[in-house]
Design a protein around this nucleic acid. Structure first.
Lengths: 250, 250
DNA sequence: TAGTCTTTATGTCAAAATAACACGAAGAGG
DNA sequence: CCTCTTCGTGTTATTTTGACATAAAGACTA
């Protein structure tokens, strides 16, 4: 009788646990899965990253890369896009998978596998949408990143190295500039990301050689010197060239 | 009393389920996680891939990329290495993370997230160790790959495109050749992987310019023509140059 | 043993790409 | 109107690339 009573209590406990907190049971252990997204921006000659301040444990109060656990039946890419939208209000930005981090011990809550993405945003777009969660989100210049939660320092380093490697061989730099930009801006972006100094004339020659910039015949005004010309990137032409085996390279 | 009896039965069932088959319960659903590995080899002027024939459902009888579910507290990289060892007996080969696939619906068993890796093996090593599971594993030339289980066709395409992109900018081709190889062999590898024809003299000039080949002053014998010289790749020197900012490029 | 066959190793030249370099013009502000 | 700042442009020397042909060596055969 005692046994039976114990069983019943245990059973009720099991039921409660299963129905309220642990509905999802598997034969083998599974890591939890998150998608995190390093969001790069470029402003005032500086490469920046959007970080959020954690409001809960673990690492409460620390800065971290935005991200979160995947929902049921959601792919990591959908998750990363959803998180980006929730955190910044941004949609339809350049986003690409970066790397998957799965070391046991990278998260104190247990085994957490994180698929990291990186996004490149035009800060002009961001200014319009910011607001909602803005209290907890902030742009940091690359040179002024605080120490981050989890292994996010490492993720950021990987993202930076990917960005540096990729910007030379694919026209992703334009994703960080306004729709219309000047050649000095573009050059400054390359110099900043790659940490090199480039000769202005040689840079222009190379860019022109691609034939992928549309000249808007329109200049910067209100500056105490001759205003630079506005250009935009010819995405359509690039796609055509791509299909014919063209390789972008700066 | 009836309720109580029912409860007890249910409880016992719960206990059984939890202890025997579903020990691992979580508050939110989690995808299962696998690590799969595309194993490339190069032999007789052909790029090859090691596939295994599935012995169980789903896709029983179909060819697939080797891989499996991660164990408790295991990282995906450890898992990929373990699977590689189990399937082929190979250790200490070049292996790199490729991409993570997580679309719901890519596996009929439910939500399965796969972190794909690719490995480059020297077939001379492989011949020594092969045996155990060899009945179910087979090398396929890239041009003769059958249709594969799950979304493994897609994974293979991604791996091929990564290999093609990377072989030009990093010295990974050497991982596919024996320790000592000839320049004609190396050229044939590049021609095969990149699907281009390269001028022999220009190729040699470029390779020599890197200064990364060690000449073994030793030639192929037993061929009805002048034997090609053996070289090996100077890994130590490459690492030194890397740290000084050197960029490998063919 | 001389001839044939196959594949290796090598150098030059023309064309293209890159790196280095300086000055005049335009706009704003004092 | 003078000054300051940054934009836009062209030439030359150097380096890199791509195209191309011939002589020598080893094995087999007649």
């Amino acid at each position: 009788m005692l046994v039976q009573k114990t069983n019943v209590a245990l059973c009720q406990y099991n039921m409660k646990v299963m129905s309220e907190t642990k509905n999802y049971c598997y034969q083998y252990p599974r890591p939890a899965v998150t998608a995190d997204c390093i969001i790069f921006g470029f402003d005032e000659g500086e490469l920046k990253v959007l970080l959020i301040e954690r409001g809960i444990e673990p690492y409460k109060g620390k800065w971290a890369i935005p991200g979160g656990f995947i929902h049921n039946e959601e792919s990591t890419e959908e998750c990363a896009k959803r998180e980006l939208l929730e955190e910044t209000g941004l949609e339809n930005v350049f986003m690409e998978q970066l790397y998957t981090f799965s070391d046991y011990g990278r998260d104190p809550r247990g085994h957490v596998l994180t698929v990291a993405y990186y996004a490149l945003v035009k800060l002009e777009d961001y200014h319009i949408h910011a607001g909602d969660d803005a209290k907890y989100a902030r742009w940091f210049a690359i040179s002024q990143i605080p120490s981050l939660a989890f292994d996010h320092d490492r993720i950021l380093r990987v993202a930076l190295s990917r960005l540096r490697g990729k910007i030379r061989y694919q026209p992703i730099g334009f994703e960080l500039l306004p729709e219309k930009f000047t050649l000095p801006e573009l050059q400054s972006l390359y110099e900043t990301v790659l940490e090199v100094k480039i000769d202005r004339r040689n840079f222009r020659r190379k860019i022109n050689a691609t034939g992928l910039l549309i000249d808007h015949q329109e200049s910067v005004t209100g500056v105490p010197h001759v205003g630079a010309n506005y250009f935009s990137f010819d995405k359509k032409k690039y796609k055509e060239l791509l299909e014919r085996g063209f390789n972008f390279e700066i």
